[in-house]
């Protein structure tokens, strides 16, 4: 036994599930809003922009917590390749969470659109209009968004595999439900 915690801290678990819900909503809203001309287009894009900026702030808080509070260890018997995959996929998830809102803001700035959020909050432009920058950022936002959804699916699959097949306590480290003491990571 080490001093490492068996579970993520409550604030980390709360942020994980809050952000998970919002990110899935963002991905669905994103592909939904760009494929409609119906009146719902406007509220959807307003939510997408507002939630995107909120998620950018939340991921910075979450990253600070992650660096400050150590994460529970992975089970010792987990094959090294899987462990590497788990580390890389989490790095990628953090990367997407940081990069996606920045790409979204950047593509709006580079198209000279005012970025107005819910409540009339306006984010000042940090980039000048540029056809080339807009195209690059727009493409990156679209294709990385699709890749983000694929990675979220992979993450869900891995979580369910840990929870239902391996039953190795990994899911319990982040589970929103209270855990009984006997459910702890295999060590």
């Amino acid at each position: 036994m080490t001093d490492a915690p068996h579970r993520f801290a409550p604030i980390q678990r709360l942020l994980h599930w809050l952000m998970a819900f919002c990110i899935v909503a963002m991905l669905f809203i994103g592909v939904g809003m760009v494929s409609t001309v119906a009146p719902k287009y406007l509220p959807l894009i307003l939510i997408h922009k507002t939630l995107g900026v909120a998620l950018l702030i939340l991921v910075l808080v979450r990253l600070a917590l992650r660096l400050r509070l150590s994460a529970p260890p992975l089970p010792v018997d987990l094959p090294p390749a899987i462990k590497l995959g788990a580390r890389l996929s989490h790095l990628l998830l953090y990367g997407f969470m940081i990069v996606m809102p920045l790409l979204g803001l950047g593509m709006l700035w580079a198209a000279a659109y005012p970025v107005v959020l819910f409540g009339g909050i306006e984010i000042p432009a940090l980039l000048p209009q540029s056809d080339r920058a807009h195209t690059l950022l727009w493409n990156a936002h679209v294709y990385l968004g699709l890749a983000f959804f694929a990675l979220v699916l992979l993450h869900v699959a891995a979580a369910l595999f840990h929870a239902l097949v391996r039953r190795d306590g990994v899911f319990a480290t982040i589970s929103p439900l209270p855990q009984e003491e006997r459910v702890k990571p295999a060590e």
Binding site: G32, L153, V156
Partner: peptide, 14 residues
């Protein structure tokens, strides 16, 4: 779960 999620996503995207 994965299949339904992907299908819902594809439907939302049109």
């Amino acid at each position: 779960v994965l299949g339904c999620s992907a299908a819902a996503f594809a439907f939302t995207a049109g």
